[in-house]
Design a protein around this nucleic acid. Structure first.
Lengths: 233, 233
DNA sequence: AATCAGTTAAATACAGTGTACCGACATGAG
DNA sequence: CTCATGTCGGTACACTGTATTTAACTGATT
């Protein structure tokens, strides 16, 4: 066999950095950020790590579990970094951070609320939230409060992303879209069977998504404030 | 050729009832009701109609479109059958009917809020809703009102179903589950890093899903009522 | 009436998916 | 040195959504 010096000896095949959940999840998140949730396949994740597809099953037991891990990864971005002033600020902050995280990772909208979030980061977020509202009323009332608020922002975020995608698909802004191309919709409105809807589409002005999110959120927070004051109601 | 009487002539092969969207959607809904959304494949839908898979593409152009049609089919069950007393009754009714429809068709939870609902039935529901709140305030405020309420119940329904599935998977009730088996969760709580969460899990009593849904809904409706009274706020 | 066009249905084909399984290889024991 | 053991990678299977090709039937035209 030909002898080689140290210098022309080929680099040992760059032993792929030892695999672990973190690297796998990071790759999956990157893939999803680029091409949406349906661009995440175990094969593509594995390929991005220069590894056979089956290797992943040493660290994950199913694709659903990978999704759960991805969600929890993003919950790290949702964790408040500093103690909130009061419960209201805590809940408002949680809502807005969740929204912003979803804008950074649109695929989160598809997963939000789909399964209970029990990863360590999600638990930390829950803990921080509960700590901020602890003692304001009896446990039941407090729970109802945070669940109501989070039901609101979960639903609102989802709708916002859904609309954003619809706009993107037609290349038109939400309002213009309805009156211009929405081929089906315009025909429907033209039938005269939906006068109230037609009026809204006609009269409504375009509202910034963030302010409409914030407005609805404030309403809900007002409601919660009233109930926290009078826990029996 | 052997002659046959009318009686022993074999039934003509039951020409599969002429295909149309309705039959396709009905089959898909049935499949989803039985085995969840992921049990719906174009091949299985086609098989249930005794038809080759490709036939479907004459009536549907993609699987997503089929999902949209399924959603709209269910919106027919959500349509109010009689004029509501006032706007509050209208919104509350809409929320509850959506919830009940989702309990009949659990897969709806996976689709709710995922894309804008623009089918005829969904539009009819929207129309009825807008008609019930029309004139209570300026268009913007009214829109914010119905969007806030529907964000709430969308999110709440999704979470309810998510929890229900989690319970079902472990065979335990929500609360018992947390303290009993949730292998991960209990270990986490035991670390003492989540005192507020631990307190809630420990002190909280099990609350009926329907009443917690209704309670949160009433809170949100209260908030909306306040804003509709003073549209400028 | 026979042929052909054109439309419709069917079958085949392809590129992918999640994951079960199995055979090779490395490592440690006797 | 041999053998057992257990880990790791690849192959394989059953299935997905959909494009495309082939077959069959219908209706019109010579």
């Amino acid at each position: 066999m030909k002898s080689m010096t140290v210098w022309d000896r080929p680099e040992p095949p760059p032993r792929p950095a030892p695999l672990d959940r973190e690297r796998i999840v990071a790759a999956a998140v990157a893939l999803a950020d680029e091409g949406g949730l349906e661009a995440v396949s175990l094969r593509k994740v594995a390929a991005r790590l220069d590894v056979g597809p089956m290797r992943l099953y040493g660290y994950i037991s199913t694709k659903e579990e990978l999704f759960d891990l991805m969600v929890d990864e993003v919950y790290a971005e949702i964790l408040p970094e500093e103690q909130p002033g009061d419960w209201r600020e805590a809940l408002r902050g949680l809502a807005h951070r969740t929204r912003h995280a979803t804008r950074r990772h649109e695929w989160l909208a598809d997963l939000l609320g789909g399964r209970p979030a029990l990863g360590p980061n999600a638990l930390a977020v829950t803990e921080a939230t509960l700590a901020a509202v602890d003692g304001l009323a009896d446990v039941e009332t407090v729970m109802r409060a945070v669940e109501t608020v989070s039901a609101y922002f979960t639903g609102a975020i989802r709708r916002e992303i859904a609309n954003l995608r619809a706009e993107r698909a037609t290349g038109l802004s939400d309002r213009d879209w309805q009156r211009a191309s929405g081929p089906h919709l315009m025909r429907m409105l033209a039938t005269g069977r939906f006068p109230a809807l037609a009026k809204v589409v006609h009269d409504g002005t375009e509202v910034d998504a963030e302010v409409s999110f914030a407005t609805g959120l404030d309403w809900v927070l007002d409601a919660v404030a009233a109930k926290l004051a009078r826990p029996t109601a």
